[in-house]
Deep mutational scan, measured.
Amino acid sequence: MTFKLIINGKTLKGETTTEAVDAATAEKVFKQYFNDNGIDGEWTYDDATKTFTITE
């Protein structure tokens, strides 16, 4: 399955996707992406659209 990440950061904005077997696996991938890029904020997940959103 394809999961999308929408980034609404102070310095970084955009979208990316990842292929994962489930939302929990995608969450781990995206959290690592947050850490690697110094993004910290509030994030949500919409199961209907398989979209994670992080807002700094």
Score class of each variant (00 low, 15 high):
Gly9Ala: 08
Ala23Pro: 07
Tyr33Met: 13
Ile39His: 04
Thr17Val: 07
Ile6Asn: 03
Ala20Ile: 02
Asn35Trp: 13
Gly38Asp: 09
Thr51Val: 04
Thr53Lys: 04
Thr53Asp: 01
Ile6Thr: 03
Phe30Gln: 00
Thr16Leu: 15
Asp46Pro: 00
Gly14Val: 14
Glu27Gly: 06
Thr44Asn: 06
Lys31His: 06
Thr18Leu: 14
Gly14His: 13
Lys50Met: 10
Asp36Lys: 10
Ala23Gly: 03
Ile7Thr: 03
Gly9Leu: 15
Asp40Val: 14
Ala23Thr: 05
Asn8Ile: 14
Lys28Gln: 12
Gly41Trp: 15
Thr11His: 13
Met1Asp: 08
Thr49Pro: 00
Tyr33Thr: 04
Ala48Thr: 11
Val21Tyr: 08
Thr18Ser: 03
Thr49Lys: 05
Lys50Gly: 03
Lys31Ala: 05
Thr16Arg: 15
Leu5Ala: 09
Ile7Gln: 02
Phe30Met: 03
Met1Trp: 13
Glu19Gln: 14
Glu27Pro: 01
Tyr33Ala: 05
Thr44Tyr: 09
Ala24His: 09
Gly41Leu: 07
Thr17Met: 09
Ile6Phe: 05
Ala23Cys: 10
Thr51Glu: 03
Met1Gln: 10
Glu19Val: 15
Glu27Asn: 04
Tyr33Leu: 12
Ile7Asp: 01
Gly41Asn: 06
Thr17Asn: 04
Tyr33Pro: 02
Ala23Met: 10
Lys10Tyr: 11
Ala26Val: 02
Asn8Leu: 13
Ile7Val: 08
Thr18Met: 12
Gly14Tyr: 15
Thr18Glu: 03
Ala24Pro: 07
Asp36Glu: 12
Ala24Cys: 10
Phe52Val: 01
Gly38His: 12
Thr44Asp: 07
Glu15Gly: 06
Asp22Thr: 04
Asp46Gly: 00
Glu42Gly: 05
Ala20Leu: 02
Leu5Pro: 01
Thr25Cys: 06
Asp40Thr: 14
Thr55His: 07
Gly38Phe: 14
Ala26Arg: 01
Thr18Ala: 07
Asn37Tyr: 15
Phe34Gly: 15
Lys50Arg: 13
Asn35Ala: 14
Ala26Pro: 00
Thr53Phe: 08
Thr25Pro: 00
Lys50Tyr: 08
Ala23Val: 09
Leu12Gly: 12
Ala20Pro: 01
Asp22Met: 02
Gly9Glu: 02
Glu19Ile: 14
Asp40Gly: 08
Gln32Thr: 10
Ala26Met: 02
Ile7Lys: 00
Thr53Leu: 05
Glu15Val: 11
Glu56Met: 12
Lys31Asn: 03
Lys31Phe: 06
Lys13Phe: 11
Glu15Asn: 05
Thr25Asp: 07
Thr16Cys: 15
Glu19Cys: 13
Ala20Gly: 03
Asp40Lys: 13
Asp36Ala: 12
Asp47Trp: 05
Ala48Gln: 10
Phe34Trp: 12
Ile7Pro: 00
Leu5Gln: 01
Ile6Pro: 00
Thr53Gln: 04
Thr55Asp: 05
Phe30Thr: 00
Asp40Gln: 14
Gly38Tyr: 11
Lys4His: 13
Met1Phe: 15
Thr16Asp: 04
Gly38Met: 11
Leu12Phe: 14
Thr11Ile: 12
Thr44Ala: 11
Phe3Val: 02
Gly38Val: 13
Gly14Asp: 08
Thr11Asp: 10
Ile54Met: 12
Ile39Asn: 04
Ala20Val: 04
Leu5Gly: 02
Val21Ile: 12
Phe30Leu: 03
Gly9Asp: 02
Val29Arg: 09
Lys31Leu: 09
Tyr45Glu: 00
Asn35His: 13
Tyr33His: 05
Ile6Cys: 05
Met1Lys: 09
Leu5Trp: 03
Glu42Trp: 11
Thr16Met: 15
Ile7Gly: 02
Lys10Asp: 06
Thr16Ala: 13
Asn35Arg: 14
Asp22Lys: 01
Phe3Pro: 01
Phe34Ser: 15
Gly14Phe: 15
Glu15Leu: 08
Thr25Asn: 07
Ile54Glu: 00
Thr49Asn: 05
Thr18Trp: 11
Leu12Ala: 08
Gly14Cys: 15
Glu42Lys: 08
Ala26His: 00
Tyr45Met: 00
Leu12Ser: 09
Thr49Trp: 03
Thr17Trp: 14
Thr53Val: 06
Ile7Trp: 12
Thr55Pro: 01
Tyr33Phe: 13
Ala24Phe: 09
Gly41Tyr: 15
Glu15Asp: 05
Tyr45Trp: 02
Thr16His: 14
Glu15Lys: 06
Thr17Cys: 12
Lys28Glu: 08
Gly38Pro: 12
Thr25Met: 11
Lys4Pro: 01
Ala23Trp: 11
Thr53Met: 07
Thr49Leu: 06
Phe30His: 00
Thr18His: 05
Asn35Pro: 05
Lys10Thr: 12
Ile6Leu: 05
Lys50Cys: 04
Lys10Cys: 14
Thr11Ser: 09
Thr44Ser: 12
Lys13Val: 10
Thr25Glu: 14
Thr17Asp: 04
Lys31Met: 11
Ile54Cys: 06
Glu56Phe: 14
Lys4Arg: 13
Lys28Tyr: 09
Thr44Gln: 08
Gly14Trp: 15
Thr49Tyr: 03
Glu19Asn: 12
Ala20Glu: 03
Asp46Thr: 03
Lys13Cys: 15
Ile54Val: 14
Thr49Ser: 08
Leu5Met: 05
Tyr33Val: 05
Thr16Tyr: 15
Lys28Cys: 08
Thr55Ile: 06
Phe30Asp: 00
Asp36Arg: 11
Thr11Leu: 11
Thr17Pro: 02
Thr51Ile: 04
Asp46Asn: 09
Ala20Asn: 03
Asn35Thr: 13
Glu19Ala: 07
Phe34Gln: 15
Thr25Gly: 07
Trp43Gln: 01
Phe34Asn: 13
Lys28Met: 10
Ile6Val: 10
Ile54His: 05
Ala23Glu: 05
Phe3Tyr: 12
Glu56Lys: 04
Gly38Ala: 11
Asp40Arg: 13
Ile39Val: 08
Asp46Ile: 04
Thr53His: 05
Ala24Trp: 09
Lys4Gly: 02
Tyr45Val: 01
Thr55Ala: 05
Lys10Glu: 07
Asn35Ile: 15
Thr2Gly: 03
Thr51Asn: 01
Leu12Asn: 08
Asp46Ser: 04
Ile6Lys: 05
